[in-house]
Design a protein around this nucleic acid. Sequence first.
DNA 1: CTGAAAGCGCTAACAT
DNA 2: ATGTTAGCGCTTTCAG
Lengths: 335, 335
Amino acid sequence: MVKIKDVAERCGLSIASVSKALHGNSDLNPKTAEYIRSVAKEMGYVPNSSARLLKTNRSYNIGVLFVDETSSGLEHEYFASILNAIKVQAEDLGYDITFISHHFKENFLSFYEHAKYRNVDGVIIASVDFKDPEVVKLVESEIPTVTIDYDFNGKSSVVSDNIQGEKDIVDYLVRMGHRKIAFIKGDDTSVTQKRVASFYRACKENNISVDEQYVKEGRYHIPKISGSITRELLELKERPTVIIYPDDYSLLGGITEIERQGLRIPDDISVVGYDGIKLSRLLRPVITTYVQNSIEIGKQSTLKLVDMIENPKTAIAEVITVKGTLQEGQTVKKL
Amino acid sequence: MVKIKDVAERCGLSIASVSKALHGNSDLNPKTAEYIRSVAKEMGYVPNSSARLLKTNRSYNIGVLFVDETSSGLEHEYFASILNAIKVQAEDLGYDITFISHHFKENFLSFYEHAKYRNVDGVIIASVDFKDPEVVKLVESEIPTVTIDYDFNGKSSVVSDNIQGEKDIVDYLVRMGHRKIAFIKGDDTSVTQKRVASFYRACKENNISVDEQYVKEGRYHIPKISGSITRELLELKERPTVIIYPDDYSLLGGITEIERQGLRIPDDISVVGYDGIKLSRLLRPVITTYVQNSIEIGKQSTLKLVDMIENPKTAIAEVITVKGTLQEGQTVKKL
DNA sequence: CTGAAAGCGCTAACAT
DNA sequence: ATGTTAGCGCTTTCAG
């Protein structure tokens, strides 16, 4: 491994000069600096991030905490897309990404300990149980963090606009003539709470009195569950004219059930999803869904975190809300 | 930050003793060691991986190279699933994961340079252009690597069994009574070449003379392209009875086109995919496809890489082939 | 059984 | 404009 010392010897200069040349700054003779750089390049010199970190206390490494409760956080298209956007933006800013975990084997580390162990400059947190004491500890530590889709009071976060999203859906349905609107909730998280509240408020604004038997407790991403809830809804004496699902996968489960009952979409019943997975555009009919802007969410969270890392004095904690868009597909009938 | 020195002072012992206690080995008095550990824990001591690396030259960090040519490598379910499996297995072995990239901003680093810069112990490479000189350089460097779905002569790799996969599909179709089999290729990669060769061989074994107009050049993951190729196939005087697609997304594009022509699946024409995305089981009809074992692929590549890292003398370079399974869905008609 | 000390590669304050 | 040097936190050899 070629190190600064090697370059210095080859140049017949001190290691300090080489270090300075490599950083561009300082008052080195420009020609000397240029010469040193050319020699360094020729010798294939690559700095050692760990040695540098030891001196500077900056790793240019961002931790990403994506817990896969079901061991598959990354397999959710929404999160995979966010992660990819984080990766792209971080690379652009000169940061690398390391997953934060429990780092088993030797000794179990808490998320906070792991972040310290790897000296990450900050952590982006998504798809976790935000009530987990370990997560809370990390967020409240001295390490800068940005949470995605969860707002810790006084901390920075980037959240998808679930309030507006659910409202856009309801407003659209009303415009399409629907008033018997069924709503299937996802797991009880803050995201869900916002969507539920927004659903009720939007209905009220449109003078729709929500029929409580149209509001069901469901789960995210489990087509079987949304399928059976769909059946319950279809069995009601007074059937809803449209069902809002918690996500596109759940909607697919619903579609399967609806077709099994011999009903047609959207002629017999309309359906709306959430997320805007790629397939929502590929399938026929094209799915009507609220497309979350996962790329922007990943990008903004990275920008915010790096801002906090590089400008600890001036960066302010804030909640950044990212809007999505309603994709008007072919699964909602005009009544 | 609490460091070894702090713990040593609190214990009234030397830093050497603390270091030894923390590692369990050596000939420290067991009671002293236990005492030191309890103090360290109480003080919230967490080792510094960078300082340790500087001495030991081991980072317990694995680089992962996933290039997103279309900036979306991670959004392909197959690769997202592999990555997740790598993450889970690495964590279990006490390794962390860092993405290898070009690390822009300051100075552009080649993949090899980036791997050195971060001192990763090894790199897993997937979803890249394996002809890229940079990738070749990394693979041929002193850094241990495992490539996924590409076999560099004499290097370790984990590959999905594309030969068997394509053969299983053809054999199944023949058993179902099909002989007019159309085949749409993906982009020209080694994976595709294997599938194509296997397709021809399997046909031959089944005494089917392949009609060349049934074999088309396509692309992976672009439903529009597979859709238009599907149309070409449907326009032939002698239509095939079944179309094999390069992946499940492409199949979806084909289905859309087929239904647009007013044809029914599988009554009018049968279709087969590749990959086994989650949706292939959710949709109706359930898609007949070859399910790649992405979890096993991720797991095996991590195990192999760590084996090479930890046993450089005895670990042998090898190609590990991971079998998949044919998912008999409802898109192939029994003739 | 415990401690002293060298040194991993680098940065930066301070000399020269 | 260039060089000397201390030291970041840790492991490990060698002494005691």
